[in-house]
Design a protein around this nucleic acid. Structure first.
Lengths: 147, 147
DNA sequence: TAAAAAATGAAAATGATTTTCAAAATCAAA
DNA sequence: TTTGATTTTGAAAATCATTTTCATTTTTTA
């Protein structure tokens, strides 16, 4: 998604003008290159490392904007810290989180999604989003555990 | 669980002495009467409403203590705020969260748990805890929506 | 009962996120 | 284009839930 597309999209969705901005484009560009969840700090550091001057305010602001537009999604794990992930179409994935090394593995399990829908129906609940996280030890940390 | 049991348990588990304390017992007592997740503020207010003088520090400290002992469990929903729930044996439940009215409904679905175990096995992952939350509109809010 | 250790509350510290505000950048339109 | 209006920006301040500090009080132990 390029700058013009984003601006058009924004105008349509939020019915407010949006001025073109190099800084925001920078954040959007780096955001688009991500395919997994990331912390704000991670994105901020990545942009900084490339020698672009930018502030946390702008990174937060842009990510919140992308979330309002439905292009990003917040995901808060057990540590309570805000993370974002790009929304690629309707396919949803869940997470395995290693409590020792912090590694996060994504997975999909359509059979679980089916059962979730069933639970929702049972409660007459209309689900628009869900999350599922399994916390424990990853394969590597289990190996180390045994030594 | 009474005061002595808690203290014995604590000594065994954390190998440190624990002095008896009326304030802590108060928090433990009110905690034990809960059977669902609650925010720290809720518990604090409940105790205050009964005309007991207590500080947030003590409430937080006691809940953290109970968590270390495995009697309470933290659960952080999408709003990022810390909540606790009592751990009643090994049975785990998941949540339906209404994004309009904030209501939280608990449910259990053993078939989902089975599938989760399968996913974990596939990734050679050892799960010790999980959470699953479905966000959307509850039955009542859907009705209102339609009016 | 005295000395040692732990618990308490108030206030300060923390740390992630948001807001404020003055200056800079962008846009619209004359 | 220049003007004037509006938006964006970054730095610093504000926020807000949670944790820590520390002086005081309470409990325990000897």
């Amino acid at each position: 998604m390029n700058r013009q597309t984003l601006e058009k999209f924004y105008r349509l969705k939020l019915k407010k003008p949006l001025k073109s901005s190099a800084k925001r484009s920078l954040v959007v560009e780096y955001f688009m290159n991500r395919d997994r969840h990331f912390s704000v700090e991670e994105l901020y550091n990545e942009i900084r490392k490339m020698n672009f001057k930018i502030s946390y305010s702008t990174v937060y602001r842009t990510l919140n904007l992308l979330t309002k537009l439905g292009l990003a999604r917040e995901c808060i794990f057990k540590d309570g810290m805000l993370r974002f992930e790009p929304v690629h179409g309707p396919k949803h994935h869940d997470h395995l989180v290693c409590e020792r090394c912090g590694k996060i593995i994504e997975f999909e399990e359509p059979k679980i999604e089916k059962l979730q829908e069933e639970v929702a129906r049972r409660h007459k609940f209309l689900v628009d989003w869900h999350r599922m996280e399994l916390y424990g030890l990853c394969a590597e940390c289990r190996k180390k555990e045994k030594l």
